[in-house]
Design a protein around this nucleic acid. Structure first.
Lengths: 221, 221
DNA sequence: CAAGTAATTATGCAATTGTATAATTAAGTG
DNA sequence: CACTTAATTATACAATTGCATAATTACTTG
């Protein structure tokens, strides 16, 4: 559809956008490219093209490409945690239901997808070399695990069971590993598992580790 | 120490090596570089320098750099499986001891190191785009999981317990996830765990999933 | 020991990369 | 409406990349 602009008023060659919008567009473009083609594919030219700007703009909003990568990594990891923790449950739901929702959310789209795993793996390389990258990794990893541990603790309290802080930590590490491992396998080899298989296995495994009977059905009650 | 060569016989400028030696040297150099600096750091120049040859030689032994990367990936993954499965146990050891050894081996050096995880993550990016890469990934993944499943099966039989093939598969996927997840966490954030903590947690988690009492001490009996 | 051959080196090249800097121009302000 | 400012584009550049090709040279074979 034609623009509603008189002929003698030439189309503006670009539009100015608020900084937040532009930054987010650049971050989204970066993540999409990293997911599709790996870090190698996320060149400044490709990113700016996808974000529909010219490449100079990246440097205007980020001191370097590395800074953009860092922002994108943080964004992605934080979002994954949020989506996983986001329980669509009635208020005052039992803690165990929230625990079940956490496991299931972490093992189905949009968290457990090959794109998402691919992005994570791409960034992991840089975690070793780059200090700032390591800080983000550490921060987001503990954010996720601590939430998990909190849910486990609440569930135990709800059931009137006692568990030491040390043992709680071990449980959280183990359960987190189950989620990470299954998540990775779904992302790396999606065709090897049937629909809903991994959430089901995840619930069974986490339940066995914690000595709880976790069931999908709890969500609909 | 000086070479035992007369002064009038000039040192040879290079030595011819069997193809296998050279290929392996190039693969080792590639893996070392990928582990240290990620795929980006594994340039043909850096690889050839580390393997102590000139860069033209890469193309002489591999049709392209991509082919070298594929060979290196296969080599690394196969070796990880072998080291994990390599039980240093007396003949006729109970299956459960071999299972315990498998879990522990997979969660301590040289398998669970940040270098090894870093290499794996670097390659994972390419698994999505490259068909041959995906084939290697699939092959090595199933090799590892099937070995694990075999050990679980043997342990159950030894204990006289019955388990269906379907359930065995679920167990193998879950236990494999525990190993993968813990392995990853050790590699990505080594300072977050104390010495021997992850093998211990791994044994506890796998034991809980399988309904077995797994103990480190079994190895020394 | 002569000659061929394959292993290895040496050199060059076109493409791509991140970044720097200059040139535009959309939009706010009085 | 002028004028300023910062958002955005446009252009250029040095460095690095994988690969191709030609030039050497170590070793084998008769």
């Amino acid at each position: 559809m034609p623009a509603v602009t008189p002929l003698d008023a030439p189309q503006p060659k670009f539009k100015r956008e608020p900084a937040e919008i532009r930054k987010e567009a650049l971050i989204s473009a970066t993540l999409a490219l990293v997911g599709e083609r790996g870090v190698r594919g996320a060149t400044v030219r490709a990113i700016s093209e996808r974000a529909d700007v010219t490449q100079g703009l990246i440097r205007h909003y980020f001191r370097s490409k590395e800074d953009l990568i860092l922002a994108a990594y943080d964004h992605h990891m934080t979002q994954m945690t949020e989506i996983t923790a986001q329980a669509d449950l009635p208020a005052k739901s039992p803690a165990q239901a929230r625990l079940v929702a956490f496991v299931i959310n972490g093992l189905k789209p949009p968290v457990a997808t090959s794109t998402s795993v691919s992005i994570w793996a791409s960034f992991l390389n840089k975690v070793r070399e780059d200090t700032r990258m390591r800080e983000i990794h550490q921060k987001t990893y503990f954010e996720f695990r601590d939430r998990f541990e909190g849910l486990i603790k609440d569930t135990y309290e709800e059931a009137g069971r006692v568990v030491s802080a040390a043992q709680l930590r071990r449980y959280a590490i183990a359960c987190n590993a189950v989620l990470d491992g299954l998540w990775m396998e779904e992302g790396a080899l999606p065709e090897a598992f049937s629909e809903g298989e991994l959430p089901s296995i995840g619930l069974e495994a986490v339940g066995a580790i914690l000595g709880l009977r976790l069931d999908k059905e709890e969500l609909s009650q």
